[in-house]
């Protein structure tokens, strides 16, 4: 098992180097002078230009520049935002909990509803129950979530006035962030109604972000279950006289979950891509909105740093998925 873990970690290193190379080249691929782009200044004297160029290390050979960049990144220096003049890493860390909270809620919603829905659909294959679940799942899977979000706002926030439109919590409440998770912080603050408020702000974004993962997980669980239910060992388990619940819940589901876990892992990319849209619609102060704003404001330092950090997060989650995979399916380890 240790060898398996080390092997996975060894794979991560070249991937990380590749990702950092892409983030590094990004600034240099942009049309225009990198000195002007990185300093955010439009007009400058030749001396100042040369000075900034030297400061940024842009006058050195490319491989040296890349090595310097890599050293900076590994020591936690991802540059400074051109717009806010704050360190990129600091901005990322202050905004990431908002995205993490939203994504976790979305994936929990998706797994809690999606796995049972898929299992039941597979067991009741061909019935109206199966057909309606899969019909709803397909509509969810086909949903343009930015439109879905707008529709929910029109109905729940506009027409019914049940939920707020944007932000993380009502402006009435203020408390210092402890965990960065609004649901937990609002409880810790002890202010009456704060948790309720945070929850009401979270509910629509969670539904919007969770819709596609939910549909994908339900569909994937169903098809994995169908495949497994036809296997010999399931027939053996049935003929041994085990209860249907045990056959489906233990013998079949355990094996069916292997591809489902990969699917859940792949949803992290989907979630972060979805966060870009969801956070834009609901003005959710997370890294998705941060990146979109950075692209619009031409804050290239943020785009470069954000690209690397988001890719890093996805790589770590994929590593976790791989390791889980190894635990569940011993065949993979060798």
């Amino acid at each position: 098992m240790l060898r398996f873990l080390l092997g996975r970690l060894a794979i991560l290193i070249p991937t990380f180097l590749g990702v950092s190379l892409i983030a590094f080249s990004f600034i240099r691929m942009l049309p225009g002078d990198p000195v002007m782009l990185m300093s955010g200044e439009r007009v400058m004297s030749e001396e100042r230009h040369a000075a900034i160029m030297h400061d940024l290390g842009l006058d050195r050979p490319m491989p040296v520049q890349y090595l310097n960049y890599l050293t900076d990144v590994l020591s936690g220096d991802l540059g400074t935002s051109i717009v806010t003049k704050r360190p990129v890493l600091g901005e990322f860390l202050s905004l990431f909990p908002a995205t993490l909270e939203l994504s976790l809620c979305a994936i929990i919603l998706a797994v809690v509803l999606g796995v049972p829905a898929g299992v039941f659909a597979a067991v009741k294959r061909g019935t109206w129950f199966d057909q309606s679940i899969m019909g709803v799942a397909l509509v969810g899977y086909s949903m343009p979530i930015f439109w879905w979000g707008l529709l929910l706002i029109i109905f729940f926030s506009g027409y019914l006035q049940w939920t707020p439109v944007s932000g993380r919590i009502s402006l009435m409440y203020f408390f210092p962030p402890v965990t960065g998770f609004m649901l937990i912080d609002s409880l810790l603050s002890g202010q009456p109604g704060a948790f309720r408020s945070a929850f009401s702000y979270l509910i629509l974004p969670t539904i919007v972000l969770g819709t596609i993962p939910l549909a994908v997980i339900a569909r994937q669980t169903r098809s994995a279950m169908l495949e497994v239910l036809g296997e010999d060992y399931v027939r053996t388990a049935r003929s041994k006289g085990l209860s249907p619940l045990r056959v489906v819940g233990v013998h079949a589901l355990r094996n069916a979950l292997i591809p489902v876990i990969t699917t859940i892992g792949l949803q992290v990319g989907v979630l972060l891509a979805g966060a870009i849209l969801t956070e834009t619609i609901f003005s959710w102060p997370g890294i998705g909105k941060w990146m979109v704003d950075a692209v619009f404001k031409r804050d290239y330092a943020v785009v470069q740093g954000g690209l690397l950090l988001i890719a890093g997060v996805i790589m770590l989650v994929n590593l976790a998925v791989d390791i889980t995979y190894g635990f569940i399916n011993p065949r993979i380890r060798h």
């Binding site: 070249p14 991937t15 990702v19 990319g269 870009i276 990146m291 988001i310 996805i314 790589m315 994929n318």
Partner: peptide, 13 residues
């Protein structure tokens, strides 16, 4: 490994 590098980025990003 090259595919891993591409997959490390969300498509929309």
């Amino acid at each position: 490994r090259i595919m891993d590098i591409i997959l490390a980025f969300p498509s929309l990003l």
